[in-house]
Design a protein around this nucleic acid. Structure first.
Length: 172
DNA sequence: GAATTGTCACCAG
DNA sequence: CTGGTGACAATTC
């Protein structure tokens, strides 16, 4: 029985994005300018599945995701269908527990995992298929600089600025 | 900023 | 087991 993957496009202040869902939950959230290439990547990633354009079926999800991108405090509460090695999934779950407006660094995450090398953490984060909802943008280097981001360093800066100028966090 | 080097857990084969 | 591989980190210019 072939699996069904449905996808749809949305727009945000950070650019167009594509979401993809399996039966279980979100499998991808990608920013990309070139839609054809992104859709192709999805088909390659799920060669065993039927990949369908379901723009109309997913409008509600698209809207939830769009709000989550625009407003870091908004929790779309969507199920995520994480696919990866056990290690990657562990890392992604840790990322999700980072509060909005806060940042950490690769070394700290590594320490929490009980490993010594920051780079394995980095690699797992880099494989994160779901932008923003798995907040890989909240992880920066130890000296505070931004090194890389799968969807562009510019986008990472924008996200961080958005969260840190954050509307409703005052306190302190 | 950019280049340079040490280092090591992870994963695929 | 072996080897390639880094969205690192610390150092240097």
């Amino acid at each position: 029985m072939r699996e069904i993957i449905r996808f749809a496009w949305g727009t945000s202040s950070l650019g167009d994005f594509m979401i993809a869902m399996s039966k279980k939950g979100l499998v991808a959230l990608e920013f990309n300018l070139r839609r054809a290439a992104t859709e192709e990547a999805l088909r390659v990633r799920f060669t065993e599945a039927d990949v369908l354009d379901s723009q109309t079926d997913l409008v509600n999800i698209v809207e939830l995701v769009r709000r989550a991108i625009e407003d870091p405090c908004f929790d779309p509460d969507l199920p995520l269908d994480l696919r990866g090695t056990a290690y990657e999934i562990t890392v992604w779950k840790m990322l999700q527990s980072i509060p909005a407006g806060k940042t950490t660094n690769y070394g700290a995450l590594a320490a929490e995992l009980g490993t010594r090398d920051a780079r394995d953490v980095t690699e797992a984060i880099a494989r994160n298929p779901i932008a923003v909802l798995v907040p890989c943008h909240r992880v920066i280097k130890k000296d505070g600089s931004i090194s890389g981001y799968r969807w562009g360093v510019k986008r990472k800066r924008a996200l961080l600025a958005l969260e840190q100028n954050g509307k409703d966090f005052r306190l302190e």
